[in-house]
């Protein structure tokens, strides 16, 4: 059983070195382009100092079991933050999130690994960190190593890996322990064609067991292959929530009209 409910979610990142904007705070929001929401999302105190950045604002949606959600949106639209809130890493500032089912998240390829430790040691650490017993980790070790396809690199420090190798190991570990809710950030597209195919197959068997997939990506083909429903984030708000093909079409159309407007 897996289920996600997000209600009126808002998240603000605090800024501690109290930046003073070099733009005039009164006119800056008016000067900024209509589609660049960066300026409106800065939270200011009474004197105009920037206190923080509002990453998400009034986000609500519900995900039923077996649904595969694709998150789209420009850089800085709040995709990664939303994934981190769903994973329980950042607590919401307003609203709430409930997540039913065992959750695994792969939000940043460089996080959640000890880069001085070997691939094998990281398998142990991540397995234990996701609440598995040592024996369960050992039972899966060979399978993880095989899926990651690292050969003897599995006994070398993760430092020596390429970005693609790190990602393969990360993905192999995360999916080996059969989570109910899988949260993936966009770096999955860093894999080569062969790995993306293997990853897609694994994700579809996983969703076949009525799990939930939340995948953020800039790759339309990856989203089309793996997702059923699309969620378009814009300036920390949900702009569109519809079947993936419709969302991708609208998102691409807006991208084109924006480029056209600028030219």
């Amino acid at each position: 059983m897996s289920h996600i409910l997000v209600q009126d979610l808002a998240v603000t990142y605090p800024l501690f070195n109290r930046a003073r904007s070099s733009l005039d705070t009164q006119t800056a929001p008016l000067d900024a382009g209509e589609d660049f929401g960066g300026t409106q999302r800065l939270v200011r105190d009474k004197r105009g100092y920037i206190k923080g950045v509002r990453a998400l604002d009034g986000v609500s949606f519900e995900v039923e079991q077996g649904e595969r959600i694709g998150l789209v949106g420009a850089n800085g639209s709040g995709k990664t933050t939303l994934l981190q809130v769903l994973a329980g890493i950042y607590p919401p500032e307003e609203g709430f999130v409930t997540v039913e089912g065992r959750t695994t998240s792969l939000v940043n390829i460089n996080l959640g690994m000890r880069s001085e430790a070997t691939g094998n040691q990281n398998i142990t650490l991540r397995g234990l960190a996701s609440g598995r017993k040592r024996s369960e980790v050992e039972a899966r070790r060979a399978e993880i190593a095989a899926f990651a396809g690292l050969g003897e690199f599995i006994d070398l420090p993760v430092d020596t890996y390429s970005a693609g190798m790190r990602m393969r190991l990360n993905f192999a570990i995360a999916t080996a322990f059969e989570p109910d809710v899988l949260i993936l950030d966009e770096w999955l597209s860093a894999g080569d064609a062969k790995f993306r195919k293997a990853a897609s197959e694994r994700m579809s068997t996983f969703v076949g067991r009525a799990g939930i997939l939340v995948l953020a990506s800039h790759s339309a083909s990856l989203l089309q292959a793996n997702c059923t429903r699309g969620l378009w984030l814009h300036d920390g708000r949900v702009r569109m929530d519809a079947p993936i093909d419709d969302v991708l079409a609208a998102y691409e159309a807006s991208g084109k009209s924006q480029t056209a407007a600028q030219e």
Partner: peptide
């Protein structure tokens, strides 16, 4: 850890 529901909000935990 069995199947569980977690709730995250400002006051949780």
């Amino acid at each position: 850890m069995n199947i569980q529901t977690r709730r995250y909000d400002l006051h949780a935990a």
